[in-house]
């Protein structure tokens, strides 16, 4: 488990990180908690030639309430998201989901920015931000821009960020009208075989799916069924409508579709619908 050789740069500001990304281009990778990137490198499935360590940039680990949004710094670790009183009060889904990621060791190293930038469809936090209708603040050579979660995840492990951009903040609306996260796992620390996140805010219900396609997915069919008055049970029946689940050793695509429906119903019910 030894990665291929690489160069290592440590930066102490977002600007320096962006400058380093601009300098090294496609061969460079940002290193945050390292808990997605390093395993890939050790298995020699990823070979960045330069690692830009952003782990010690100050001021990027925070949770703040700002108006009707909660802003989370990209370097906030899963354990801190999980324990945040602001999130518990204003966006409890996100806090809860962060507590379901991996095991305590992973939650004490992994960062929310790393998880979302990595854009793994089997990850928990991207789906939570999607269900919440959140947005990502990214910083690049020409400054900041805001990308809605619905436009952020563009393909398998691909996002709307350009190679010189860095994710600096995640914003979610306050959503306190009910939530649920159904993570289907065989073992406590596993990745979700299928997951369903539900958040209710502003009189709407956001529903998203984990591991049901190449990206974290919004269950738009369920959301619109609910909007037009369908019961939780009926709405859940269309949970797999726009999904493209793959099969693996644990689950066939059909089983994943079945699970998505069952879990969506349970999630909606738990969220009070």
């Amino acid at each position: 488990m030894i990665p291929a050789a690489f160069d290592y740069v440590r930066v102490d500001s977002v600007d320096a990180a962006v400058a380093a990304l601009t300098e090294h281009g496609d061969d460079a990778k940002l290193l945050a908690g390292g808990h997605s990137l390093l395993p890939l490198m050790k298995l020699r499935l990823a070979f960045p030639s330069v690692l830009i360590d952003i782990g010690r940039i100050e001021g990027l680990s925070y949770v703040r309430q700002e108006g009707d949004q909660v802003a989370i710094g990209a370097l906030t670790r899963h354990c801190d998201v999980n324990a945040s009183p602001e999130l518990a009060r204003h966006a409890p889904l996100l806090a809860y989901v962060a507590g379901k990621v991996g095991d305590p060791q992973v939650r004490h190293r992994g960062t929310i920015g790393g998880s979302i930038a990595h854009a793994d469809p089997a990850s928990d936090l991207p789906a939570a931000v999607l269900a919440l209708g959140g947005e990502m603040v990214v910083t690049g050579p020409s400054g900041q821009r805001v990308i809605p979660a619905t436009e952020f995840f563009t393909g398998f492990l691909e996002t709307a960020m350009s190679p010189e951009e860095m994710l600096t903040e995640i914003r979610v609306p306050t959503a306190t009208a009910g939530h649920s996260y159904q993570k289907f796992v065989r073992r406590a620390q596993d990745w979700a075989m299928v997951g369903v996140a539900v958040a209710r805010y502003d009189g709407t219900t956001g529903v998203s799916l984990v591991n049901m396609g190449p990206t974290p997915l919004r269950a738009a069919a369920v959301e619109s069924a609910l909007a037009s008055g369908a019961s939780a049970a009926d709405a859940a029946e269309v949970a797999d409508q726009d999904s493209e689940p793959t099969g693996d050793a644990n689950a066939s695509p059909e089983f994943r579709r079945h699970l998505a429906k069952v879990l969506t119903r349970r999630a909606l019910e738990e969220a009070g619908l």
């Binding site: 298995l43 065989r186 073992r187 406590a188 620390q189 596993d190 990745w191 050793a249």
Partner: peptide, 14 residues
């Protein structure tokens, strides 16, 4: 199932 993510090694939690 050639690593401990794919091979469902039992843990105390189960």
């Amino acid at each position: 199932t050639a690593n401990l993510a794919d091979y469902a090694f039992v843990t105390a939690a189960e």
